[in-house]
Simulated assay, not measured.
Amino acid sequence: MRKTILFFTAAILSACTAEVDDLPPSETDATSAAIIGGTIDHGDPAVVELVAGRPEEPGTEERCTATLISPTVLVTAAHCTIPWEYEDYTVQAFFGTSRSSGEGTLVNVKEVHTHPDYDFRDIKLGSDIGVAILEEPVDVEPVPYNRVPLTQAQIGQPVRLIGFGEDETGWGGVKMHVSTTVHTVEPLRLGFGDAAHHTCKGDSGGPALMSVDGVPTIVGVTSYGESSDGQVCTSGWHTPVDRYLDFVDQFVNAP
């Protein structure tokens, strides 16, 4: 696998963040500008910013969001892990709230893997899930991922979205979260939020967390968004992780 990554920054990509009342609270700056209805998230240490680019060429940097699911494995979106022709991309995971703050840790990514069924020409076909493998283990508690499909009975249930993406003003690069609810359960995608609470560009790959047996668990990975009325981000759609357990488990369980 090439140690390179391309973040597919089409206008349809999405990501946002949120807080859910029945999930353990994270330290939050409730007065800060929101990512489509969210607030700054100073908690959730397993949620990282995934950064790729050529350090010697300003402007080449692309970014997504990912979540630690084992000491060395991050789950993210497939379109955040598409190997490309550039062998000199540096890929890192930022553990912290904002790189601009000067606080946090950058960990090198040694390889990325894209789900074999993902078709970068049409993100709506599904399989938008991938993993990034860190060069070394980190001392951060991983987040469990869901193994049981959601059902129609869970529509209306609370969910929390987390990501480093843009807000209503286009400002991004800070970990944000937002509390919202499930509105759609389909085989290939999950819908969370409403027009005022959802994900946006840069949040791609970030987690949608729901309480499973009392434990915050990744049920979806932010995949893409849609726009209308001149707005870049008006909705967000997410890949159900339970559908791709064979793909994810092989990396988590690798010796």
Rank of each mutant, 00 (worst) to 15 (best):
residue 133 I to P: 00
residue 19 E to M: 07
residue 89 Y to L: 13
residue 233 C to E: 03
residue 130 G to P: 03
residue 220 G to A: 10
residue 38 G to S: 14
residue 239 T to E: 13
residue 123 I to M: 04
residue 96 G to C: 05
residue 42 H to Q: 10
residue 70 S to T: 03
residue 99 R to I: 11
residue 145 Y to W: 13
residue 32 S to D: 11
residue 217 T to K: 03
residue 39 T to C: 06
residue 28 T to P: 03
residue 217 T to C: 12
residue 178 V to G: 15
residue 60 T to L: 09
residue 222 T to K: 01
residue 5 I to K: 00
residue 192 F to N: 04
residue 15 A to P: 00
residue 10 A to L: 13
residue 214 G to E: 06
residue 28 T to E: 12
residue 54 R to A: 02
residue 46 A to Y: 00
residue 254 A to V: 02
residue 45 P to T: 08
residue 239 T to W: 02
residue 157 Q to E: 15
residue 93 A to G: 03
residue 210 M to W: 03
residue 78 A to R: 01
residue 115 H to Y: 08
residue 119 D to F: 06
residue 143 V to H: 01
residue 153 A to Y: 07
residue 66 A to R: 00
residue 56 E to V: 05
residue 203 D to A: 10
residue 164 F to T: 05
residue 122 D to H: 04
residue 95 F to Q: 05
residue 18 A to P: 00
residue 99 R to T: 08
residue 104 G to D: 09
residue 132 A to C: 05
residue 232 V to T: 13
residue 83 P to N: 14
residue 112 V to C: 04
residue 71 P to N: 08
residue 217 T to P: 06
residue 34 A to Q: 11
residue 174 V to M: 06
residue 156 G to A: 11
residue 150 L to A: 07
residue 247 F to K: 01
residue 246 D to I: 02
residue 21 D to V: 11
residue 121 R to L: 14
residue 228 S to Y: 10
residue 204 S to D: 03
residue 145 Y to F: 15
residue 25 P to G: 03
residue 120 F to E: 14
residue 114 T to S: 13
residue 236 G to Q: 00
residue 236 G to E: 01
residue 76 T to Q: 01
residue 10 A to P: 00
residue 147 R to C: 00
residue 220 G to L: 09
residue 55 P to W: 06
residue 67 T to I: 07
residue 82 I to C: 04
residue 155 I to A: 05
residue 31 T to L: 14
residue 143 V to S: 04
residue 245 L to M: 09
residue 168 E to N: 12
residue 178 V to H: 05
residue 5 I to L: 15
residue 74 L to V: 04
residue 53 G to E: 06
residue 227 S to K: 06
residue 112 V to D: 01
residue 162 I to L: 12
residue 19 E to A: 11
residue 215 V to I: 15
residue 129 I to E: 01
residue 146 N to E: 15
residue 172 G to N: 07
residue 127 S to F: 15
residue 213 D to C: 06
residue 57 E to A: 09
residue 82 I to Y: 04
residue 62 E to K: 12
residue 21 D to H: 10
residue 243 R to M: 10
residue 253 N to T: 02
residue 242 D to F: 11
residue 253 N to F: 02
residue 94 F to M: 05
residue 183 H to K: 06
residue 93 A to E: 00
residue 188 L to E: 07
